[in-house]
Design a protein around this nucleic acid. Structure first.
Lengths: 182, 182
DNA sequence: TATTTTGTTCAAAATATACTGAACATTTAA
DNA sequence: TTAAATGTTCAGTATATTTTGAACAAAATA
């Protein structure tokens, strides 16, 4: 016999795992759309959104599958993607043959670096354009300034990461007391 | 700087406009692929790539159309896109009913700002995830640190733009003499 | 050995996006 | 007024991407 949905809204696939709150389900969808605007797949956003809000140390393939309501194939491919870009990592437990997944808590430096990748590509393309020009005009000037700026700012950003490491404890403490504890 | 080859290797669609060098045609395609990786359309990259390398103050719809070999409809839509995001601007000349297009030479500050847009979206999404969690764990800690870092770095980046404005003349001068004039 | 668990793979279907080309609108020129 | 120039719009087509679902593989268990 199939079990009926407990929450009157959208029925759950099964009752194997505790149901997610309506808010979390909604967040998972939002995260999917957000990842899409970042050029990734909607599914990868859903999976990541689930992993960072599920309040569990790590979750199984099937648990993810149920949370985001997708096929095994889709989950399999998506997890591979997310692990490839180091957004997600796998764990396992002795006496358990399942693989468990959790968000990778990558360092600020790493995040900033991948964030800079696209900018670098763009900047390098502008530099190349400059070499192809046969006359000097305000476009040449602009191309030169922009590509130089990105080169310069790249260096400065690396310094900023170090600076953050030294001040972050104070900054975070201030932030937490501002909002009050939970 | 390189000199333009007049005898195009691959036959052009028409001889209305001077042929582009093989190198520039190749760059235009590269630019298309690059824009695609940035989440934009290939055609917008081709058009922008043409505009920044064409060595003309501004070019007509038809000139663009011939350079990138696309339909009128595609050029029309693409130019609209590029003007929408302020990568391209239109000009006109008295006694000439055509519209001419050229790359917008936007300020460093503006570029940095639009570059930050996606990051801000991502960071805000992580903040929201934090509010949905029902327990404190290392994911909460990570979410808090990352979103705080982005908030902080946003401020610092605005300072960097000011700093750039004060040093850029020296920086560019150094850059130019490094490479030597051609 | 046979069966169950835990996934992976891949062809096909569903979906989304970009591009073309013809019809249309608008303005200027003849 | 007619014709030419300059684009725009949009339906249909072409392409690319994502997702599904069934078949498959490997490992553990009965």
């Amino acid at each position: 016999m199939k079990s009926e949905s407990k929450s009157g809204v959208a029925g759950n696939v099964s009752d194997k795992y505790p149901a997610l709150s309506e808010e979390k389900l909604q967040y998972i969808e939002e995260s999917g759309l957000m990842f899409e605007t970042l050029g990734m797949t909607r599914m990868s956003g859903r999976v990541f959104g689930y992993l960072i809000t599920c309040d569990l140390d790590a979750v199984s393939f099937d648990q993810i599958r149920e949370a985001v309501r997708a096929s095994k194939g889709s989950i399999s491919g998506t997890l591979k993607q997310l692990m490839q870009i180091n957004f997600v990592e796998a764990t396992s437990y002795p006496g358990d043959r399942k693989t468990y997944y959790r968000p990778t808590k990558v360092s600020i430096g790493t995040l900033l670096n991948s964030r800079n990748y696209q900018t670098r590509i763009f900047s390098e393309s502008l530099q190349k354009a400059l070499t192809l020009k046969t006359r000097e005009d305000d476009v040449s000037e602009w191309l030169l300034e922009v590509s130089c700026f990105y080169e310069w700012v790249g260096k400065r950003l690396r310094e900023l990461v170090d600076e953050w490491e030294t001040i972050k404890d104070d900054y975070l403490k201030k932030k937490i007391t501002e909002h009050g504890d939970e």
